[in-house]
Design a protein around this nucleic acid. Structure first.
Length: 297
DNA sequence: ACGATACCCTGATGGC
DNA sequence: TGCCATCAGGGTATCG
C-alpha cells in the first residue's frame, strides 16, 4: 500500500498538471536516473525546446504532448506512475528541494522566456517510467493500442464483448489493462461491490444486464473518486501536492473482516488474480443471474 | 489461453 | 529503540 495511482488519481494529476504547463516551453530536461526512460533518447525526445500542447490520459497512463515553435506536432512522452510514481508541478517561486527519488525534471519557461517552473517525476519503487515517442500518433498506434477502452468511457457493449472473450474470473479480467484501461485493485473491488457482482464470477458468464450494471457503477464510482481528489492511502498527491479524500469512502477495499456497509455481513477476503480482494458474501452472490431467477437447483 | 508464480523495488509496519 | 521479516501492488515474463 503506497500511492497506487489508478484512473481517478491519474486523472487528477492530468488536470492539475495541465492547468499549469500547457503553452509553456521546455527549456531543459534533467535526467537523474536514465534507466527510468525508455525509447528513443535523441535530443528532443524528452521535449527539449518543444511547447507542451496537451496532457492526455488513457487508463493509468499519461502523455505529455508537444508541438514545435510553428505549432506542428512534436514528440510525446508517456508517463506511467506505477505504484509509487508522482508527477509534480513546482512553481517558479518554489524553494522546496526535490523530493527523494526524483528521476527526471523538466524546466519550463513561458514563450517570452520567463521562468515557468518545473515538472518533477519521482518514483521510489520504479515500477513506473517514461516512454518517448516521435509523436502522439506513434504513442496511440503502438503502446496505447495494447490498452482496452478507458474505464470512464467504455460502452457496456464493448466491455461485454471483451469479458465474453475470456474464461478468467471477472476480477482478473477487469485488472487486465488490455480488457479495460484504468482500473486497479482498489476500484475493481469497489465497483464489484456496487454492482453486486462476486469477484470470482466467470467473466464470460455475465450477461448484458450485469455488464450494464457494472458500467453504470463504474462510471459513478470513478467520477465520485475524481471529484474527491482520488484515494490517498499513503502519499498519493496530485500535481499540486494535494491529497485525495476518496479513501474515506471505500466500502470494501481494506475492510476485510469488517461489516458490510449495506447489510452488516462480515466482509470476506481472499487472493484473486494475485491481489488482495474483499467482498460481501451476501450482497455479491457468486452467481448473480441465479440469485433471483432460479427456482430449481 | 489461462493460472500460478517470480520478479522488479522501497517504505511502512509489526513482532521481538 | 532497533533490527528484521513481511507485506503491498502494476506490469511483465516464464512455466506448466
Amino acid at each position: 500500500m503506497f500511492a497506487m495511482p489508478e484512473l481517478p488519481e491519474v486523472e487528477r494529476v492530468r488536470v492539475t498538471l495541465a492547468k499549469h504547463v500547457i503553452g509553456l516551453v521546455v527549456s531543459r530536461v534533467s535526467v537523474r536516473r536514465p534507466d527510468v526512460v525508455h525509447g528513443p533518447r535523441r535530443r528532443g525526445c524528452l521535449l527539449e525546446n518543444q511547447t507542451i500542447s496537451g496532457v492526455e490520459r488513457l487508463g493509468k497512463q499519461l502523455a505529455l504532448v508537444s508541438s514545435n515553435i510553428s505549432g506542428e506536432p512534436g514528440p510525446c512522452v508517456c508517463v506511467h506512475l506505477g505504484m509509487s510514481g508522482s508527477l509534480r508541478y513546482l512553481p517558479p517561486d518554489s524553494v522546496d528541494s526535490l523530493a527523494p527519488h526524483t528521476h527526471v525534471v523538466w524546466t519550463l519557461s513561458s514563450p517570452r522566456g520567463e521562468n515557468g517552473g518545473r515538472i518533477a517525476f519521482a518514483d521510489a519503487r520504479r515500477f513506473g517510467g517514461l516512454w518517448t515517442f516521435g509523436s502522439r500518433e506513434n504513442l496511440v498506434k503502438s503502446r496505447w493500442r495494447r490498452l482496452g477502452d478507458d474505464a470512464l468511457s467504455v460502452s457496456p457493449a464493448v466491455l461485454h464483448r471483451r469479458l465474453s472473450a475470456t474464461r478468467r474470473v471477472v476480477k482478473a479480467a477487469l485488472l487486465d489493462q488490455a480488457v479495460i484501461a484504468g482500473l486497479g485493485n482498489i476500484y475493481v473491488d469497489e465497483l464489484l461491490f456496487r454492482a453486486r457482482i462476486h469477484p470470482l464470477a466467470a467473466a464470460n458468464q455475465l450477461d448484458s444486464a450485469h455488464v450494464q450494471r457494472m458500467v453504470r457503477a463504474m462510471r459513478a464510482l470513478l467520477r465520485e473518486a475524481v471529484h474527491n481528489g482520488g484515494s490517498s492511502l499513503r502519499n498519493y498527491v496530485d500535481a499540486d501536492g494535494t491529497s485525495g479524500r476518496f479513501q474515506k469512502l471505500h466500502q470494501v477495499y481494506g475492510r476485510a473482516g469488517c461489516s458490510c456497509v449495506r447489510c452488516r455481513s462480515k466482509l470476506e477476503a481472499a487472493t484473486v488474480g494475485g491481489r488482495a480482494t474483499v467482498w460481501c458474501p451476501t450482497c455479491q452472490p457468486r452467481r448473480p443471474a441465479a440469485a433471483v431467477t432460479t427456482k430449481k437447483d
